[in-house]
C-alpha cells in the first residue's frame, strides 16, 4: 500500500462526512484509520471503529498524495475478529444465511422468461424498496429492454466485503456466476452492485444511468428536484456516469436544482446503515436539512441506499428509474 506518502495535510479529515458529523466523533478519521492504523499495527487493534466509515471515497479524492485510503480501511475490516462484529452486521449475516440477501426479500414480481438481459435490483431493491425495482423494470420494458429478474440471484457480496466477511462474499459470487452465465447483459440499479460485478466478478455490468443515457427518456415529474449523486457512482464507477446522471435528467425535462454538496455522502454506505444507524441517520438528517433549505420538492438519486437513508428523513426521494418514462 501507499500510506507512506501521507504528508499530514489533513485534507482527508476535512472531507470526511463521518468526522464532520456531530455524531461522528469516535471515528479516528481517514488519517487515523487509513494511514496510521496500518502503519503502526503494534498499537492496539483498531476494533469496531474501523467499521465507522461509509466508504464514500471522499478522503481518497481529497488526498493530494493519491493514497488508496478506502482500500486501506477496507483491509482493516477483513482483519476484524468475529467478536467485533456489530449487532446490525450480525443480522445481515443471518439474513444472508437464510435467504441469500442482506435484508429479507419482499419482492414478488420475478421474471424468469429466458431473456438475454438480467435486471439485478440488489438486496435493498428486493427487500426494502420494491417500488424502485418495479419502476425500473417497467421503464426497461417500455424502453424495449426485455429482461429477467431472477430469484436465484443473491446478494452481490459488496456489503459483505464492507463488513469484513470476505469468505461469505466469495460464496455469493460463485452462486451468482452460475446465474449470470445464462445472460449476455446485466443491468443494475445499485452502484455498489455495479462496482462489485465489474471489479470482483469481472462482468461489464451496466448501471441504470448508463442505460438511460442512450435512450432519450422524458420526465414524469413536476416541481424542482435536487440530486443526491451517489458516492459509488461518482467516485466508484465513473465520474462521467455521475455527470451523465444530471444531464440525462435535464435533457428529459426535469427541473434540476444543482446544490453544492449534492455529491457528499448520505451516510448510508459501507455497512454504516446497519452498523451505526444513529450516525448514519444523523448524516442523512443534516443533508436533508441542507436540501430543504433550497426549497426543492424532492431529491433524485441513483442508489437504493441513498433512497432508503434519505427517504427515512421524510423528504421525497426518487430513484432515477422512478423519475423517467420513455418518450411518447
Amino acid at each position: 500500500m501507499n500510506e507512506d506518502r501521507c504528508i499530514k495535510c489533513g485534507s482527508c479529515t476535512r472531507a470526511c462526512p463521518v468526522l464532520n458529523d456531530p455524531l461522528g466523533p469516535g471515528f479516528p478519521g481517514p488519517r487515523g484509520a487509513g494511514v496510521d492504523a496500518p502503519r503502526f499495527p503494534e498499537r492496539d487493534s483498531i476494533g469496531q471503529i474501523a467499521l465507522m466509515c461509509t466508504m464514500c471515497h471522499a478522503c481518497e479524492w481529497a488526498c493530494p498524495s493519491g493514497i488508496s485510503l478506502t482500500l486501506s480501511m477496507l483491509r482493516l475490516r477483513s482483519g476484524l475478529n468475529e467478536a467485533d462484529r456489530l449487532p446490525g452486521h450480525r443480522r445481515m449475516m443471518d439474513n444472508i444465511a437464510s435467504c441469500g440477501r442482506t435484508v429479507s426479500t419482499e419482492f414478488k414480481g420475478w421474471r424468469e422468461e429466458g431473456n438475454r438481459t438480467l435486471y439485478f435490483p440488489g438486496c435493498i431493491g428486493l427487500g426494502r424498496l420494491t417500488h424502485l425495482t418495479e419502476a425500473a423494470s417497467s421503464l426497461l420494458t417500455a424502453l424495449g429492454v426485455s429482461h429477467d429478474i431472477s430469484s436465484a440471484a443473491v446478494c452481490c457480496g459488496s456489503p459483505l466485503l464492507k463488513i469484513g466477511a470476505t469468505g461469505v462474499a466469495e460464496d455469493l459470487r460463485r452462486r451468482n456466476m452460475e446465474v449470470f452465465s445464462r445472460y449476455d447483459r446485466v443491468i443494475t440499479s445499485c452502484p455498489g452492485c455495479t462496482n462489485q460485478l465489474r471489479e470482483v466478478y469481472g462482468i461489464r455490468a451496466e448501471h441504470m444511468v448508463e442505460v438511460l443515457k442512450g435512450s432519450d427518456p422524458r420526465s414524469k415529474l413536476d416541481g424542482r428536484w435536487a440530486l443526491q449523486v451517489p458516492c459509488h457512482l461518482k467516485r466508484g464507477l465513473s465520474p462521467w456516469a455521475a455527470d451523465d446522471m444530471a444531464s440525462v435528467l435535464v435533457a428529459a425535462g426535469v427541473d434540476v436544482v444543482r446544490v453544492p454538496g449534492e455529491d457528499c455522502c448520505c451516510g448510508g454506505g459501507g455497512g454504516m446503515l446497519a452498523g451505526f444507524p444513529e450516525t448514519s441517520s444523523s448524516i442523512a438528517r443534516n443533508k436533508v436539512q441542507m436540501y430543504r433549505s433550497t426549497g426543492v420538492d424532492g431529491i433524485i438519486t441513483a442508489c437504493p441506499f441513498c433512497s432508503l437513508n434519505l427517504g427515512r428523513q421524510g423528504i421525497r426521494v426518487l430513484d432515477i428509474g422512478e423519475a423517467l418514462a420513455p418518450k411518447r
Binding site: T13, L19, D21, P22, G24, G29, R31, G32
Partner: peptide, 14 residues
Amino acid sequence: AVPPEVPLTAAFRS
C-alpha cells in the same frame, strides 16, 4: 470539547 481530529467547522454548524 471537540476531539482534535474533528474539523471545527463541524462543531460550529448549529
